[in-house]
Design a protein around this nucleic acid. Structure first.
Lengths: 94, 94
DNA sequence: TAAACTACTTTATTTTATAAACCAAATTAT
DNA sequence: ATAATTTGGTTTATAAAATAAAGTAGTTTA
């Protein structure tokens, strides 16, 4: 009746991050920070968790001399997100 | 861009409870326990939180000699649930 | 060259969720 | 009759998570 909601995605911040990443080729740390309104610390931890699960891929590069953390969703991430949405629809009856 | 998801509803158990209650006139503790699969302790705490927020009303009665805890959603609860769904739709783009 | 800013990570604190233990009465079995 | 089990929960303790604070490393601006 109420299958489990992937706990990794059932978090306001991580869900927002995935929601952004699913719509773009890639996004950097600052952009995700602006869009989500999260603090840098929370975002850092959140991204690390998503990466550890294989839902996103983090690529560290430089833009000129400044460090830059690029994130992109993986196929597993896309699938997990889609599944989460489907399960949630059952909860919400939508 | 990402408005807050009511933290009281953004919990797997409490969301499941609300999802049940929104569709029925009332439901008792045992029924909610069966449907959600939650332990009695977690359900007890969860219901108390929803009641404290005014999202549900808890009525303690007896069925014969056995105690019975009846729960029903309140108008505020219905509204909060609806709002939660709407906000979530923004996250999920559905 | 000192202050302030960018781009983070790490650690600590608070909150929340989960699980375990407990309680009281009712029912069932011996 | 009484002991064991079940029902219907609450309370308390533990584990996990989210949030916030502090720290690091380097860059840009005044």
């Amino acid at each position: 009746m109420f299958p489990e909601l992937d706990p990794l995605l059932h978090s306001e911040l991580r869900l927002a991050v995935m929601s952004i990443l699913i719509g773009v080729e890639s996004a950097d740390f600052s952009f995700l920070r602006e869009q989500t309104g999260a603090t840098a610390g929370n975002l850092s931890v959140g991204l690390e968790k998503l990466a550890a699960a294989g839902y996103i891929k983090i690529e560290k590069t430089f833009r000129g001399k400044m460090p830059r953390t690029l994130c992109r969703i993986t196929p597993q991430g896309t699938q997990a997100f889609q599944e989460y949405v489907d399960v949630l629809k059952g909860y919400l009856k939508i």
